[in-house]
Design a protein around this nucleic acid. Structure first.
Lengths: 343, 343
DNA sequence: GAGAAATGCCAAAGCGCTTTGGGGCGGGGG
DNA sequence: CCCCCGCCCCAAAGCGCTTTGGCATTTCTC
């Protein structure tokens, strides 16, 4: 069923039917009702391509999600981020186009997407500390929102939604120091990612404030897998001066830490304390009633919603001022932290 | 840059340029070369909507992924499935449209997608044991491939890619029985999902073969979260006759089991054995060199690739016979299983 | 009651592409 | 020398929609 068929069926012109459907004031309420009913009855939906061609607007946004070339892993937070974003898209009747791209060829992917002209805007995932995509997108002139930030570009020059990584890890570290811990391991995300840099800064700041030095042998950074959590912890535990507390950049890494401690016969929250960052993923809830892990928490699904909302805004009126949203992570106390053991 | 501009720039007609670009034989090689070069140089890509309008083919496929309404969780295997599928799409220059839909309104979502006409085919995720979507899609007449199967429809009437859930869980159960286990807990996926039914069948078959009865109090089914693994295990352990082995439907559930065992002071692989199903997710690798968990393993990323390939086939030639791919899961031995403890 | 202002509808152009149905031009066969 | 056939290329139609500009018809104003 297309517009033409529907309109002849109704004995009206295509113009009128189109206008009735799109809420233009030039048609009477009686006609509009009739049209609406007929459309519903015949399950008519305007062909999105044709509409896009005619209006120049696509009612679609793109997500380009980077695939770590080295490790072939796509960040598991995307499911929830996208779930959040798609709530908004559904409401606004927007489509979501997904492209998974090896991180090396990302820039090219954006260019291609822009040239194909099938989306009205994009969301940038996983910004590096020094990310060329921001400049690229500004040059192309396509609306975009960054999930996170990138150290290199002026923050005021693009829209972003980020959590306060620095502050979160500063507080977590501080909390451990207050509990008497002096040797605190950091299992950070992949070096080069902006969020990882910022977390390390927070960690470092808290240490400095307590007059402690950052020790290189306690700082790891890698793709955030369970195996990484395990092996890095094992390595630290085997060292001459093992940590009494560990900061892990994700709950999955935390799983690995837990396994390493078990394997080593150490009691979590007693022999070694653990704080994880918790993205509040739906399939990785940090406990039901009561949190299991002490964690810095910030919902990535919420971030998805906000990103999408801002992007919609930006698309519908490109003149709108840029938006910057900094989400605060809460520090929630679970069962994996306790006072530093006396030695 | 559009076709018109490019063609006047070259002093050729739009027809010729279009044909040169699309590999039609009616243009000379010399001209084709010139056109290709110019296109590359000016970063020209045909507007996808216009092409779609003209050809009736969209060069896009849809993924509708169900969002568990009750639990608001989207299955974490999608990241890897989609990563696999998108390898194929990238190769064929297809776009991927993603829609996340509360599972209640899925049927409607498919209808809408069909009416909008923006994709050439879809992949069906998370089929229920009794899933109306298959009949619906056949009725609509849109090419589709199911990831998994659905008990209700004739398997020969649609294309699917599934792993051998029944066989995998039968083997795993068998393996535990051979180790002397008699009380084996099953932490299955959500009841109603086809894969969960099939896994339970396998479990039951192995028990029956050994002359054992399936015990209701040892069979759980739920959304596959860590918390579920934990609490179900705790519950079983607290019962009069706790299990000596547990079968978990995902590695994440397995994490929860591990935590429950730790909490209870039980040694995994000694006091209680554990086998998990491992979808071989990139961010949840079951160990690096050596597997940690004893597991039934089947790569969901591979399944994604195969689904996408079959769908492409089906789209390019709808007359092609339907395809059915049954992937076998391997049983890999890790450190979480051992002989049943003597009591 | 005549002119002005709404009101409700329509015809046609145009978005950027593919594709059908020619048409000019050079070369080989009769 | 003429004709016909390939080889290359082109003009124009059409995909399904929105939107501009315009034309009746009705309602209002004085």
């Amino acid at each position: 069923m297309n517009l033409k068929e529907l309109s002849t069926l109704l004995g009206l012109s295509q113009t009128t039917v189109s206008r009735a459907l799109n809420g233009y004031p030039e048609v009477s309420e009686v006609t509009r009702d009739k049209v609406m009913k007929a459309a519903k009855q015949h399950n008519y939906t305007p062909n999105i391509r044709a509409r896009g061609l005619a209006t120049g607007r696509n009612h679609a946004v793109g997500h380009v999600i980077p695939l770590s070339t080295e490790h072939e892993v796509v960040n598991p937070v995307f499911t929830d981020f996208i779930a959040g974003a798609s709530e908004i898209y559904a409401r606004e009747n927007y489509d979501m186009m997904l492209t998974i791209v090896p991180d090396k060829t990302e820039a090219e992917a954006y260019r291609k997407i822009a040239a194909k002209g099938s989306v009205d805007g994009v969301i940038v995932h996983g910004p590096k500390a020094n990310d060329p995509r921001i400049a690229l997108l500004r040059e192309i002139g396509m609306p975009f929102v960054v999930h996170g930030r990138s150290g290199i570009a002026e923050e005021s020059e693009y829209s972003w939604v980020d959590m306060n990584n620095t502050r979160a890890f500063e507080r977590a570290t501080q909390f451990l120091i207050d509990l008497g811990h002096r040797r605190i391991g950091l299992l950070n995300g992949l070096e080069g990612m902006d969020f990882a840099m910022k977390r390390r800064e927070g960690y470092r700041a808290a240490l400095a404030a307590a007059g402690l030095k950052e020790r290189k042998e306690l700082c790891y950074s890698s793709e955030m897998t369970e195996e990484y959590g395990f092996s890095a912890t094992m390595e630290m535990l085997a060292s001459r001066r093992p940590p009494t507390a560990i900061l892990a950049s994700s709950i999955i890494v935390g799983f690995g830490v837990r396994r390493a401690l078990d394997t080593s016969g150490l009691k979590i929250g007693k022999d070694v304390s653990l704080i994880v960052h918790d993205d509040d993923l739906s399939y990785l809830r940090n406990g039901a009633a009561e949190p299991i892990y002490t964690a810095t928490r910030s919902s990535v699904r919420m971030a998805g919603r906000i990103c999408a909302e801002i992007l919609m805004e930006q698309i519908s009126d490109p003149k709108r001022p840029l938006r910057h949203v900094l989400l605060d992570a809460e520090l929630i106390i679970g069962h994996t932290t306790g006072p530093a053991p006396q030695d």
